[in-house]
C-alpha cells in the first residue's frame, strides 16, 4: 500500500467524525435558535445550556426498537438511509479547507483536503444526484402511500432545482476558468474579488436552489407533516430515521461549504488560517438557513414548481448569458 493511502484514510476518518460532531452540535443550535425566534427557551435542561441534548437524543434513538414493517423490501429499506448519508458525507472528500499546512511542533506538511480532483465541482453534483436515490428507494421500499408520495415529491423537487443550481454555478466556473474548488478559491484571491459581487444573481439562485436541494423550510414539501405524515421516511424509526435526518443536515453543511468556496473566496482570507475562514463562512450560511426556517412558512407545491421552472431557471440562464458575454469580451 502506498503511504498516501494511510494518510488519506486518517484524514477521511477525522473529517467524517468532525462533520458528525458538528451535526450533533447544529441540532442543538437550531433548536435553541428556533426557540429564541419563537419567544421560548428551547432545550435547556440536559447539561449546561442544554448542550448535552444531542447525546440524550442519540441515546433515545439508539435504544428504540428497530422495526421492519410488513410488506417492505428489507434490503432496500435498510440500504436507503445509508445511501443518503454516504452521498452527503462523501462530498467532503473534495472540499478544500486550505492549502498545504505544517502540523505545529513538527515539520510534517499535509494538504488540508482529502483529494483535489480537477473536476471537484462535478463530483459534488454527481454525489448530489446519487443522494436522490436514498429518498426514492426509501419511499418505494416502505410500501406505503405516504412514503411513495413523499419520495415522488422529493425527486421531482430535487430534479427541478438541480438544473437551476448547476446553471447558477457555471457562471462562477466561467469567471474562475476552473472546475476545481481550490482553483475557484485561488481565482478569487487572484482577482481580489469575492464572486458574490459579480455573480450576485447566481448567488441568489444558488442559495434558493440549495435550500430546496436539502429540503429545508420553506421547501420541505417531501416531508410536509400536514399532508404526508412525514413523507418518504414515514415508515422509518429509530436510528434509520435519524440517518435520513442526519443526511439532510450533512448536505446542508456541504452546500454551505461549497457556497463559501464559490462565492465567498473559500479558505482565502487575511490574518486567520484557512480552515478558520472556511468555518466562519460556513457558519454564516448555516445561520441564514436557520433564520429562514424560523421566518418563512412552507410554500404550496405548485408554487414550488413554478418558482423552480419559471423564476429560478430563467434567472440562472440570464446570469449565464451575461457572464459568458462579459468573459468572452474580456478575453
Amino acid at each position: 500500500m502506498p503511504d498516501g493511502f494511510i494518510l488519506t484514510f486518517v484524514k477521511a476518518f477525522v473529517l467524517a467524525n468532525l462533520v458528525m460532531g458538528v451535526f450533533a452540535f447544529l441540532t442543538w443550535l437550531e433548536r435553541r435558535l428556533l426557540g429564541r425566534f419563537q419567544v421560548r427557551l428551547g432545550p435547556n435542561r440536559v447539561g449546561p445550556f442544554g448542550l448535552l441534548q444531542p447525546i440524550a437524543d442519540l441515546v433515545k434513538l439508539i435504544r428504540k426498537e428497530s422495526i421492519l414493517p410488513e410488506g417492505i423490501s428489507p434490503v432496500l429499506y435498510i440500504a436507503a438511509p445509508a445511501l443518503s448519508l454516504f452521498a452527503s458525507l462523501a462530498v467532503f472528500a473534495v472540499i478544500p479547507f486550505g492549502e498545504e499546512a505544517t502540523i505545529p511542533g513538527t515539520d510534517w506538511k499535509i494538504f488540508l483536503f482529502i483529494s483535489n480532483p480537477s473536476v471537484a465541482l462535478l463530483v459534488v453534483f454527481a454525489l448530489g444526484s446519487i443522494s436522490f436515490y436514498g429518498f426514492l428507494v426509501g419511499g418505494w421500499s416502505s410500501s406505503s402511500k405516504y412514503s411513495l408520495y413523499g419520495s415522488m415529491r422529493a425527486v421531482s423537487q430535487l430534479i427541478s432545482y438541480e438544473v437551476s443550481l448547476a446553471l447558477a454555478v457555471i457562471g462562477v466556473v466561467m469567471m474562475a476558468q476552473s472546475l476545481s474548488l481550490t482553483g475557484i478559491a485561488e481565482a478569487q484571491d487572484r482577482d481580489g474579488l469575492w464572486y458574490i459581487i459579480p455573480q450576485f444573481l447566481g448567488f441568489v439562485v444558488y442559495v434558493v436552489a440549495s435550500t430546496a436541494e436539502v429540503s429545508r423550510i420553506p421547501f420541505d414539501l417531501p416531508e410536509a407533516e400536514g399532508e404526508l405524515v412525514a413523507g418518504y421516511h414515514t415508515e422509518y424509526g429509530g436510528m434509520r430515521f435519524a440517518m435520513f435526518q442526519n443526511a439532510e443536515y450533512v448536505a446542508l453543511i456541504a452546500f454551505s461549504a461549497v457556497a463559501s468556496i464559490l462565492f465567498f473566496g473559500g479558505y482565502e482570507g487575511p490574518w486567520l488560517p484557512g480552515p478558520l475562514w472556511m468555518l466562519i463562512k460556513m457558519t454564516f450560511f448555516i445561520l441564514i438557513a436557520m433564520w429562514v426556517r424560523a421566518t418563512l412558512p412552507r410554500i404550496r407545491y405548485d408554487k414550488l414548481m413554478s418558482i423552480g421552472w419559471k423564476v429560478l431557471l430563467p434567472a440562472a440562464t440570464l446570469n449565464l448569458l451575461v457572464t459568458s458575454a462579459i468573459v468572452a469580451w474580456r478575453a
Binding site: 462535478l122 453534483f125 446519487i130 425527486v155
Partner: peptide
C-alpha cells in the same frame, strides 16, 4: 458526467416511472 447524466438524471426518470 457519466454519474451526473446517466446514473443520476436518466436513471432517476426510469425509477420515477417504475415506482
Amino acid at each position: 458526467a457519466q454519474v451526473i447524466v446517466y446514473a443520476g438524471a436518466v436513471m432517476i426518470m426510469f425509477l420515477f416511472v417504475i415506482a
